[in-house]
Design a protein around this nucleic acid. Structure first.
Lengths: 180, 180
DNA sequence: ACCTGAACACCGTTCAAGT
DNA sequence: ACCTGAACACCGTTCAAGT
């Protein structure tokens, strides 16, 4: 049985992590998060056994929200255009949450990627398959490769000029089926 | 005047950082590096005022080595093929040094990217320009966008199967000039 | 059952004291 | 001029003691 105070604490911790990150743009320390949430450090570690688990939970939320948009976009746009619009959303979302994983280390990053991998791949596959069916997307396009490429898009810092839209156009050019 | 012991210490510290990283695959702490190099912590900070500066120095070495290969490759290969071979080298080099920057944080990552940016862009431009001149590479190809995309290649973990060669082929397809 | 918060081992960095 | 290494403030994580 989960006590209601435990459930509330979990939410308070997640909210504190999100808020602190939004305020500073830097990944907050676990002790900072616990203090902001008004709980002891041990309580944080009861709910999230490791810093990685806490960051993962925040990411998962964002990714779920973005994935949920796919059916609607695909219903009203052509497959390639749906892919373009959705990818811009993904890029914006990843940029929002990015710094969170900064203090994490390679293996932690990888396990986070693995946890969120399946659903995102499924979302991309939905759009790729639609394009392969109507002949607008080349048949050998791979969702895994595509996802990997999107990483390059949100890492392109939008300084004076955002490279992402132009890079995305180039990438979609590569995916377009030959008119042959 | 730089004393010879100071010059030697600089080299010892860099070598220690490289060795420790090679052994563990994880970014070593500055105190670990100082101990391995056989110098005090303060000496390390005299030569590299910040952890970031130390990591940057190790990266710079690797990048310089890779850039130096461009003229030779371009002399014996077609521009697109030179770009392909050189990019595979870059991917291998980046994968070798990657974990080093793990503990660094977004702003440090960015300043490292900026420091190494110019020479790498120049190297890519050499190859792109060669291809634009002979009409094999589309005229609107951008070195900055290309470099950004290569980040997605070396981040593609070579697990059971390395995605990088196939992703690179797709990317080069996009750069190829229309036969129109 | 769940919580608190002092404590642990470690981190990057500093600085007084030495040569 | 350059070096050493103890010390500082902080980190992620643990665990005895409380309710």
């Amino acid at each position: 049985m989960v006590r209601s105070d435990a459930r509330e604490n979990r939410e308070k911790i997640l909210a504190a992590a999100r808020d602190l990150f939004l305020e500073s743009g830097e990944a907050p320390s676990t002790n900072q998060v616990a203090q902001r949430a008004g709980v002891g450090a041990g309580t944080l570690y009861r709910h999230f056994p490791t810093r990685e688990a806490l960051v993962l939970a925040v990411y998962q939320d964002e990714v779920d929200r973005i994935i949920a948009d796919v059916p609607e976009i695909l219903a009203r746009e052509t497959p390639l255009e749906a892919l373009r619009l959705w990818t811009l959303e993904l890029v914006a979302g990843m940029r929002r949450k990015h710094g969170l994983g900064d203090a994490l280390g390679a293996s932690a990053h990888q396990s986070i990627a693995e946890q969120t991998y399946g659903p995102v791949i499924a979302a991309i596959d939905t759009m790729l398959d639609a394009g392969k069916s109507d002949g607008t997307i080349r048949a050998d396009a791979e969702a895994g490769d595509y996802l990997q490429f999107t990483g390059a898009l949100w890492r392109a810092a939008p300084g004076p000029e955002d490279r992402a839209p132009r890079m995305l156009a180039l990438l979609l050019d590569a995916l377009r089926a030959d008119p042959a």
